[in-house]
Every structure is written in C-alpha cells, then in structure tokens.
Design a protein around this nucleic acid. Structure first.
Length: 869
DNA sequence: TCAAATACTTAGGAGGACGTCC
DNA sequence: GGACGTCCTCCTAAGTATTTGA
C-alpha cells in the first residue's frame, strides 16, 4: 500500500513542509535525558556480587575492618595526613605550567605551578573572607545607607564599570523576594497582533536579518542588565513573552526516477517514507565513522526494514517483483550518494547573484522567527528550526546510533508563551500538542524526540539578556567559590581519613573533581554510550601504581578518552586501593557509596549553589587568571595572542577538551619541517659563501660554525636540490602556459615551445651549479657586492624566520588535538579576556569572534583593566 | 527515597565563509 | 580568480542539576 507523503503549509508563508502521519507521537518509551533507569547500587551489586564487609558495616570505622594483604600501607591511615599537592606527571589532563623549553623536569615544574596556584587560592580565600567581614560590619554600622549602594553582588566591588552607565535606573537591593519585579526593565507590552511587528529593536544592532523590520521603528534603549541590581530571585524569568514559534524542515523530495537504491545489484523502488531513510544513509556515505559502524548499520537496517514493512515493501524497478531487503551488505547507496553530491556541487556552482537571491529568500522566510519579545525587549532566538528527520548520530559506542529520528509533527510540539500573546498558528490542518504559559522556564518551544525520548527546547540565543545573565551568575558563583576553596580543601583532606566509608568516598571524589577537573559523573542507562565521570568511575578505569601514581583511563563526555597518569596524595592512593578492594572487579563502581546528588548536597553546605561543575569553572578561570597575571608584555599583538592562546591551551588541557586530529595534519607538519630544513640549508650555504670570501674565517669563527646543520646530510641536500629545481621548473612552465593562454584569449600568437626551452635554461644552470658545489664542496659567493657582513645579516634574518616557523610548527603540533574554543566559551570568565586586551592593548576582535563578542557583551562593557577574577 | 521528568549548559563535528597565496 | 587552509557558525548530542511525584 503506497501512501503519499502528507504535505501542509502554514507556518511560514511560502514554505511547504512534510511530516509523517499524525499519530499519537511516535515516541519510544522515553528514558529521559541522561538518567539511568536503574540505580547506581544495582550497577555493582546487581550482578550478585557481595561486598558484605563494606555494605554491612558502612559506619563501622574502617580501621576496625579486616586487614587486606596491603595492610601495611593501610596501617599508615592513622598517621597525620600531610597536606600535599598533586604531582601530575604526564602531558595529559593536567599540564598546567607545561613548558617544553624548560630544563626543569616536567613533573617537578607542574607540581610547582599547581602548588603555587593552590597556595595563592588559599591566601586569597582568607583575604576575601576578611574583606567580607569588614564590609559586613561597615554595612551594619550604617544600615540606612544600604539602598544607595550597589555592591550587592559578592566581589563586585572589584569591578569598576569601565563605561558610564546608561542602563536602567537602579532599583534597590539585590535579594528582593519580590517576584513581581521584572527580571528586566519592563518595556511597554507589545500589542496583540503580528508578533514580529511588536518586537522592538535593540539599540546599535544592525537589523539586516530581519527584513520585515527595517522601517522607522524607535530604537530600543540598550539594557545594561549587569548594572541592574534588582534582578529578583531568578524564579520568574519573564512577565510577557511573544514569539512566532518554529520553522519546520522542508518536506522530503523523492529521488528522481533515474536514481535508485540498489539491492543485490538491482535497482529498487519504494514508498517515500523508507526511501527517505535510505536517502539519509546514502547522503552520509562519506562519513565513514558512521556508515562503517556495525551498530549504526544494524540500527539503520532495523528502522529501514520496519519502514518498508509499514509502507508496502520494496520492488524491483524493472520487473516490479517484490524485493525482500534483508542484508545490509547487499545494499548499494552509491547512486544516491552521487545524486546528493551532484546536488551539492550544483549548489556550489551557482553564481554569486543566484546565491544571494537564495539567501535573501531564506532570510525572508526566517525573519519572523529570528526574534522574540521578552518582557517587551527584542531578543534573538537560538534554534528556531525544528530538527529535521535523520539518522541519529550517537557518539562513541552509543547503542542507538543509526536509528531513524522521525519527522517532528506539530502535535508533538508544546509552545510556551505569554498569556496575553498571540499563539503562533500551527501548520494548516494541525494543532500544537499544548500551549503553556510557564514563566519560570526560559524555553519557547519544546518537543520530545523519538530515539532517546530526549526533550528538545527552543531557547534564546547566546547573546540574549537571559543567557548573558545566567552566564554572569555562573562566573560569579565560581568567584564565590574562591572564598571557600581553602576550607573545602582542608575539609576533604581531613575526611580522606574518615571512619565512615561514604564520607571517605565523598572526600576522595571531591579531591579528584577539584584536582583533575573531572565531571560529576551521573549514572547512565544501558541504552546510552558507556561513558563515565567521577562518581561513575568503574574498577577498570583506575590503575594504581605504587607508591602514589594513579592512571585514569576512561571515556568521558562525548566518548572522549581521558587518559592521565598523576601523582596523588598518599591518602587518596590508599583510599582508591580500598575502594577497589576485593571482591570488586571490572564493571563495579569505585564510589559505590556515592551519588552525584549526595555529593552536590554536601557541597551546597559550603555555599548555596555549589555543585561539582562549579569546580571546573572555578579551576579553569582561576588558572587562566593566574597565568594572565604572570604574563609579560610581548613585542606585538600577534605574540601577545600567542601567549594568550598558550594560557588558553593549558586550561583546555585541564578540562580535557579535545578535537580529532585533522586528516592533513601529518602532511602539514612535514611541509613545515621541510621548510625549516630548507632555511637551515640556506643558512649553511651562506656560511660557505662567507668562507669563499674570506677563508680565514674558519679559524676566527671556529669550524663548528660552518659545519652542516644537524640532520642535514649530503643525501638530503641532493634530494632538496632536486625538489628545488623541480619546483622552479614547474613555476616557469606554469607561467609560460598562463601567458600563452592570455595571448590566445587576446587573439594573439602564442609563444613557441622554444621560448619555454630557453626560459628553462636557468634550471640547467642551477643544476650544474649544484652539481659543482656537491663535487667540490665549495660554494661561490653569489650576488653583486657580496660581503661577509651582508651574508651575516642574511643568516640572521633566516635565523629569525626559522625561529618563527619553529614556534608555529610547535604550536600546531601542541594544538593538534586540543580544542581551545570550548574552554573559552564556557569556562574562562570572559572578563579575564577583556582585562587581558585592555592591559596589553590587544583588540578584543583578536580573542573573541563576532559571535563571542555578542555573547560576552556584558563582560566587554563591564570591566576595566584592574578587574580581578 | 528513588526514579522519572524536566530544564538547562557543555561539547565536538560538519560545512560554509573568509582570508591568503600564487 | 582559483586553490587551499583556517576560522566561524550552526547543529544537535551529551552532559549536569533540579524538580516532581509515587
């Protein structure tokens, strides 16, 4: 039974959309976003293993428990714990202070740097608490003046706003419980009606993206929320909210008759529903890590076959006979891929004008969805496009990777909007799942996806006020942690020896989170990739090497490998040994008495809102702050940026932010090496020319100066000479051909091959020169007015170029698998970067791209160079 | 108390835009 | 102006953390 793909219009004028039949949500039993179905305890105990000694006497002092074979070392438990700093040893997750040029052994160097940073943090914490006390007593003594001050945000006193405020008039106190005070200054509520027309403009921002809005609307006053101290308690996010909903993806366009999926060598035809799934697979044929993954293939096959079953199966295109598609190996997607690729190329080949035209059409279509009105302010919406159907690209060994992510229908979509606002119309013939007026949420639209049952949200863009505010809060929270970090560290060092197992595990976990920037590690379900964080570390993820080295080796978020060999506090080493004690084995939790909730609950005792993830933000920003503080002025902005990136890289390494090494990396490195060697060879030649002018120099400068550079051999020279002459030959030939083409285009007579021959004479001369040099071992001084001084200056210039190239090469190598952007976007307080720019006179455009400058607008406008994290 | 539901941040990769070099 | 490499933006997966409800 063939069915037409249902099509309907209505959300965006002019766009047609297709969705699957409107059923009652094609959603598998949801597993929820990232939450395990089973409990943590089940993970280690469910297999019938007994930890009787541990579980039965949780609260029995560990010292009274049975001794193990390692009792010797355990007996040291009761010795006073000497506070030690960690000593990471490898170029892995903890390379703070790494310095490849340094003579000091890496481990020692790292230890020193980390110790310095920790010591500084401790000192700072004491100082901050002192300052707080003084401030508090001052406050008490002049209570009445409290509403004049704006230093309500902790630590804000250090931040002197660089620019004059033109923001909203300050309302008083921060901790106002008054829910009715709008989060942002209330602007006149937009009229009911076409929402996009009601969305006011933001001052100073070009509005090219919203073509419908270009006429003379009054510009909105910039709202400097970071100077507004009356931000409520954060529960109520908005008072009025207007938006136009979402754009649905275009309908599926069936393949032309000439293009087919092949099965067992024969072209087959099928209904659009299964064809769309096959099309998706064919389109991603170049993504080998997906299409060659057996799980991906298996899941794809299951869903593809199911879709075929539901839609009349497949038929031989020629005979019309039924084809039972059973085996993945017999499928051939190449024709589909070629078709998709041709379409891509055609799109690429469009003229500039055509591309412009297409873009204009797309922009016009999307314009109504770009912005919303949030408390009367025009705010950019982040992801207003409903995710198109496709094959789920779960990362790593995700058990569901390759499953078909179905087309989302309006009936699955919940709209969150202000009570007074006009609800966007669903596509004709459809209705929304639900309309909500939840002003405690920041999302505008929500639906549930069918593969994992995950919730998908449409929220505001990163440069919106509300996202900026939560970013600001996040960094303020991390700064707040500075005041408590010394106490927290003292406490966990003490509790590492606690008699209560749960407490000891907790202390050990906090130690790891603090020292090695591990993530919390929530429990995961069986239908997710097997990745872990701190609390979910398993037996096999940690190897202990006496006396105090821990080797972490596990897959973290996004299945990125975390490998690190580090020296730890001896008590941590002992604890981990205990947590791994028999009968635990592979698959069992290291921290079987600890959950992320318990850990976070404990942390919140130190400071409201303190959770495991705050440590990552704190350590990243604090490290960056320390490195920037130590930074010296560089001769120019480029070198200053290199220093900045080096600091950024240290933070990225701390956070284990990685990227896959680009395909061309090795070739690039080789190229750079060859380039450097070429320059060194050139230097050597110049030195020989110096000798040619004055053979006494050898005695004067010492023979070593004139020797062949290390690694440059006679064989290498011959090879290099050959490649030099070849490159020159190619260059001359290409130039000749181009000139001829030009002549022909101008209807002139082309040059004869003889001309090329004569031009290539120089190559012959070059070759014979090299030959002579190689034979005699002498290099004649070249150039008019050759002098020793001139050659020396040329050598010096080459030396500089070599140095620059070496730095670049090293930089590239060091950076090949480190992603800097993640830490810059999420972990390093942007105000630190602003301070860096101001202090060293570097334009903000250097470290922050346009999008980042918009996202961190609040930071750029709120600090001067004296600001400290 | 626990699992499920919910809402948000953090993450790497794909692909297009942009800049540089020849 | 085309080839090539790099940077930037978009996309959406994959985490964390809190809230809800049985």
């Amino acid at each position: 039974m063939d069915r037409e793909v249902p099509t309907y219009n209505g959300v965006a004028p002019g766009i047609s959309m297709a969705m699957g039949p409107v059923t009652d949500m094609d959603i598998d039993k949801p597993t929820t976003n990232g939450h395990a179905a089973g409990s943590k305890r089940k993970a280690s105990l469910g297999k019938g293993k007994s930890y009787k000694d541990d579980s039965d006497d949780d609260d029995v002092p560990l010292t009274k428990r049975r001794k193990t074979a390692d009792s010797d070392s355990d007996s040291e438990d009761d010795k006073p714990l000497v506070k030690k700093v960690i000593k990471p040893v490898e170029a892995t997750a903890h390379q703070i202070g790494e310095d490849s040029d340094d003579e000091v052994p890496l481990g020692v160097k790292l230890q020193e740097t980390k110790a310095k940073i920790e010591k500084a943090a401790e000192k700072e914490a004491v100082k901050l608490r002192k300052e707080d006390k003084v401030a508090e007593s001052k406050k008490k003594s002049k209570k009445k003046s409290s509403d004049d001050d704006d230093d309500d945000v902790p630590l804000k006193k250090k931040a002197k706003p660089a620019a004059k405020t033109n923001g909203t008039k300050k309302v008083k106190k921060e901790d106002s419980d008054d829910d009715d005070v709008p989060l942002v200054k209330k602007a006149p509520a937009a009229k009911k009606g076409k929402a996009e027309a009601a969305i006011p403009k933001k001052k100073g921002k070009k509005d090219a993206e919203s073509p419908g809005n270009e006429d003379a609307e009054p510009e909105e006053e910039e709202y400097r929320w970071w100077e507004d101290t009356a931000k409520g308690d954060g529960t109520k996010k908005w008072s009025t909210l207007e938006h136009n909903g979402v754009i649905f993806p275009p309908e599926y366009e069936p393949l032309p008759a000439s293009v087919s999926l092949f099965y067992d060598g024969k072209p087959v035809k099928m209904h659009a529903v299964p064809e769309e799934i096959a099309h998706a697979f064919g389109a991603m044929l170049n993504s080998t890590h997906n299409v060659e993954n057996p799980t991906f293939q298996k899941n794809f096959m299951e869903d593809f076959r199911e879709a075929l079953k539901q839609n009349g199966g497949a038929k031989d295109k020629k005979s019309g006979d039924k084809v039972d598609i059973k085996h993945f190996d017999k499928l051939d997607f190449q024709h589909i891929f070629n078709h998709v690729d041709a379409e891509r190329q055609a799109k690429k080949a469009l003229s500039a004008a055509e591309k412009k035209q297409k873009k204009a059409e797309k922009d016009a279509l999307e314009a109504p969805f770009l912005y919303c009105s949030w408390d009367g302010r025009k705010q950019k919406v982040g992801n207003f496009r409903v995710e198109p159907p496709g094959l789920f690209r779960g990362r790593g060994e995700h058990p569901k990777t390759g499953k078909w992510k179905k087309r989302v229908s309006p009936e699955q979509i919940t709209i969150n909007i202000g009570k007074e606002a006009m609800v966007p119309a669903p596509p004709a013939g459809h209705k929304w799942k639900e309309i909500k007026n939840d002003n405690e949420g920041t999302w505008l639209v929500m639906w549930q996806e069918n593969v994992n049952g995950n919730y998908k949200y449409v929220m505001l863009a990163a440069n919106s006020d509300v996202k900026g505010q939560s970013d600001f809060k996040k960094f303020e929270k991390a700064r707040e942690l500075k005041k408590h970090i010394d106490k927290i560290r003292k406490d966990y060092h003490r509790e590492l020896k606690s008699d209560v197992m749960a407490e000891r595990q907790r202390a050990t976990a906090v130690y790891l989170i603090d020292q090695f920037a591990l993530r919390a590690g929530n429990e995961k379900g069986d239908d997710e990739a097997d990745t872990v964080g701190c609390c979910s570390l398993k037996f096999e993820h940690i190897t202990l090497r006496k006396p105090d080295t821990v080797i972490f080796d596990f897959l973290g978020k996004d299945s990125i490998r975390f490998y690190s060999e580090v020296k730890v506090d001896p008590q941590v080493f002992k604890n981990l040994k205990i947590f791994k004690r028999d009968p635990k084995q592979d698959g069992d939790d290291i921290f079987d008495r600890l959950t992320t909730s318990a850990l976070n609950k404990h942390l919140s005792n130190y400071m409201p809102g303190l959770t495991a993830k705050v440590f990552r933000t704190y350590n990243a920003s604090f490290t960056m702050a320390t490195l920037l503080k130590e930074m010296k002025k560089a001769p120019n902005a480029a070198e200053q940026m290199k220093d900045y990136n080096d600091a950024n890289r240290k933070v990225a390494i701390l956070c284990n932010h990685k990227r896959t090494v680009g395909a061309g990396h090795a070739t690039q490195m080789e190229k750079m090496d060859t380039k450097i060697d070429g320059m060194r060879y050139q230097q050597w030649r110049l030195k020989q020319m110096m000798l040619d002018l004055d053979d006494k120099l050898k005695k004067k400068r010492g023979a070593a100066f004139f020797e062949l550079p290390e690694g440059i051999t006679q064989d290498w020279i011959k090879e290099h000479q050959a490649s030099l002459t070849e490159a020159e030959k190619v260059k001359i030939t290409k130039k000749f051909e181009k000139e001829n083409e030009k002549l022909e285009a101008e209807d002139q007579k082309a040059m004869k091959p003889k001309e090329l021959e004569s031009r290539l004479e120089v190559i012959k001369e070059l070759e014979s020169k090299f030959k002579k040099e190689n034979k005699t071992g002498k290099i004649e001084a070249e150039g008019k007015g050759a002098t020793v001084e001139r050659f020396e200056s040329q050598i010096e210039k080459l030396e500089q170029r070599i140095a620059v190239a070496r730095v670049q090469s090293e930089d590239r190598e060091n950076n090949k698998e480190v992603a800097l952007s993640t830490s810059k976007i999420n972990y390093i307080d942007p105000r630190l970067t602003v301070v860096f720019c101001k202090k060293f006179g570097v334009p903000i455009e250097k470290p922050f791209s346009k999008t980042m400058r918009e996202k961190f607008d609040w930071a750029i406008k709120s600090v001067d160079e004296d600001w400290e994290f």
